[in-house]
Design a protein around this nucleic acid. Structure first.
Lengths: 349, 349
DNA sequence: TTGTACGCGTTATCAA
DNA sequence: TTGATAACGCGTACAA
């Protein structure tokens, strides 16, 4: 079990100095062709590769991006990672993943762990608990130490950093507009409590689409669910909530759900209650998941273009990392909005 | 934009030596309480944290695990990552992710990149292209440099390393046995070409279950699909293949599919052809995905316990990393088999 | 009780 | 053309 070969070992073996070896390997003009040949041949034989850690220490640059997400078993987030990884690799960076598991403390710990020299910058989406507690000191501290952050999807307007977001408002509005155009008169929305920024924005889009369609929004058609509750594991609770919605509003003919699970559950409950989709009730979800495509009927959705979000975030971050610090007068932050698109499937007419 | 504070800066500021600061922070008995207090207070004020990279270089240990997977937008793999991350974090390690995208060259490049000092060991699942080409030099080279590898799911028997696998054979056999017990007489299997080891093993399980059930396997009930082809994006091709299977074998009353997509597509096609599930045809899939749970009807599956695989792999790797090298005479490799379990839903009686 | 020196692996600068 | 030295940030054995 041989260790990785180092410059020092090559130097000793060939009876030259370390710096000669280093220069020879980088094809420096200072070194004679003779020595270069000798060194390079030896290095090749022993498969020499510079040690990344040593380079990181010397250059004070790790060429590694940290990505902190609330959950990885989730199509949206795994697609974002794929996008980040794609761009990162292309531009010579590695990606190190931290999961907050929607917990504030895990988010903080993970970030501190990585911020101590392991990475050059963060790409992250804020955990629900953090959003709820509104404690953002760790973001500000990280940035004040000169480590850039790019936030995506779940972002905070008050924090000064690059952001990549979906146009939640417009995406929701277009979706609901579609329902209005299809002659739906009683359109319900299944959404989250307002502290989840995306839930709030999507609700606003819903409201505006109704207004523009000449429909007066009704409070009882707005179902706001506590999103910290783990519905994935307690589907029955979710089903009851939605069943209640349908039962107390028998004229519902359209549903806009702010995520995939809500949408699918709505379809399931509706069917159970004897409604036909899309004949009696049309349903649209807001998601990038796989469930929609394979559901029966296949769900019409607002696509978020998750991979593109990841790519954009990675490019923003790396651009910042590689920017020449001299030329910039004032630090500039951008917010890139990724346009959504409506993917029409079978749950709408 | 202040940089991260280092021992050196604290030393200069307090007019003591670097090592005094270092010792004071680690609460060494050598240092006077007075100095300790002073140093610790200052460190706290400036939020001093040791630089991970420097520690890695010094200790020749990064406390980071590299995980290489073929694809991240996939429930099985993302669940494995979650398992790895969970254990890794608990034991003080970070996780750095590399995607091979099912490509041999990307797998090699990614591994080389990480093997040069960035990580202490690998957890990986082999790409399809690598399996097909049967070129495993990069695994052997990595290990010969003293970097341990734990393979999961897609493994190679000939390679000497720790492995975590699912009992594909038994899982498949149990599933098919279930169909036999339910009085299915014409059970088809939708599987992959044999170079994907899991496909092969699952096919063998299928065959043995039939034998034991007193059913003679028929070649025309075995559909082997080219798995390098991207069915997810060309679903119509997959549908045609399966439709063909049903049409030329009208008596099919049971289907065992080696993955989620095949199973769902089989259900879809069967329904299209007028069959009822599970009345006319019962279907079982082999997967850990979400689609199964939310499909209509919900799909009975062989669960692989992906997260547990990840946890097991991480524990194996870290155990090896932290093992005292003196006490070991001969390097021992283990293969841990994770038992599958049959999750019965609505697609079987 | 404090400080000096060294080494982890690399590169850049300067001296020989 | 080659080599010695310093530096990146840290911890520790040893000297003062």
């Amino acid at each position: 079990m041989k260790r990785k070969v180092t410059l020092k070992q090559i130097a000793r073996e060939l009876d030259v100095s370390i710096s000669t070896v280093s220069k020879a390997l980088r094809n420096s003009a200072e070194i004679s062709d003779d020595t270069k040949q000798k060194v390079q041949a030896f290095a090749k034989l022993y498969n020499y590769r510079p040690n990344n850690i040593a380079l990181s220490l010397k250059n004070r640059k790790t060429n590694t991006i940290g990505i902190i997400i609330p959950e990885i078993v989730h199509h949206f987030f795994s697609k974002v990672i794929r996008g980040v990884e794609l761009v990162a690799n292309k531009r010579g960076y590695n990606v190190i993943v931290g999961l907050s598991n929607e917990s504030f403390s895990k988010e903080v710990i993970n970030m501190e762990m990585l911020a101590n020299g392991s990475i050059d910058g963060f790409i992250l989406s804020i955990s629900k608990e953090t959003l709820q507690q509104q404690d953002y000191h760790h973001f500000n501290e990280t940035m004040s130490q000169g480590m850039p952050i790019v936030m995506f999807d779940r972002v905070i307007p008050e924090i000064n950093c690059d952001k990549v977001i979906v146009d939640d408002f417009k995406g929701a509005k277009n979706a609901v507009k579609k329902l209005v155009d299809q002659q739906c008169k009683n359109i319900a929305i299944i959404t989250t409590k307002d502290y989840v920024s995306v839930g709030k924005l999507r609700t606003q889009g819903y409201l505006e689409a109704l207004e523009e369609g000449g429909i007066t929004p009704k409070a009882k058609l707005i179902l706001k669910l506590e999103d910290t509750f783990n519905f994935e594991e307690h589907l029955d609770v979710l089903e009851k909530e939605i069943e209640q919605l349908f039962k107390s509003n028998k004229k519902i003919d359209g549903v806009f759900a702010v995520n995939e699970l809500y949408a699918l559950t709505a379809m399931k409950v509706a069917r159970k209650l004897g409604f036909k989709i899309p004949e009696d009730i049309q349903v649209i979800g807001f998601t990038d998941g796989v469930l929609s495509k394979h559901a029966t009927p296949a769900l019409t959705t607002v696509s978020q273009h998750a991979q593109q979000m990841g790519e954009t975030a990675a490019n923003l971050l790396i651009d910042k990392l590689e920017k020449d610090f001299n030329e910039e007068e004032e630090e500039q932050f951008q917010t890139v909005v990724i346009e959504t698109s409506l993917v029409e499937r079978e749950s709408t007419k």
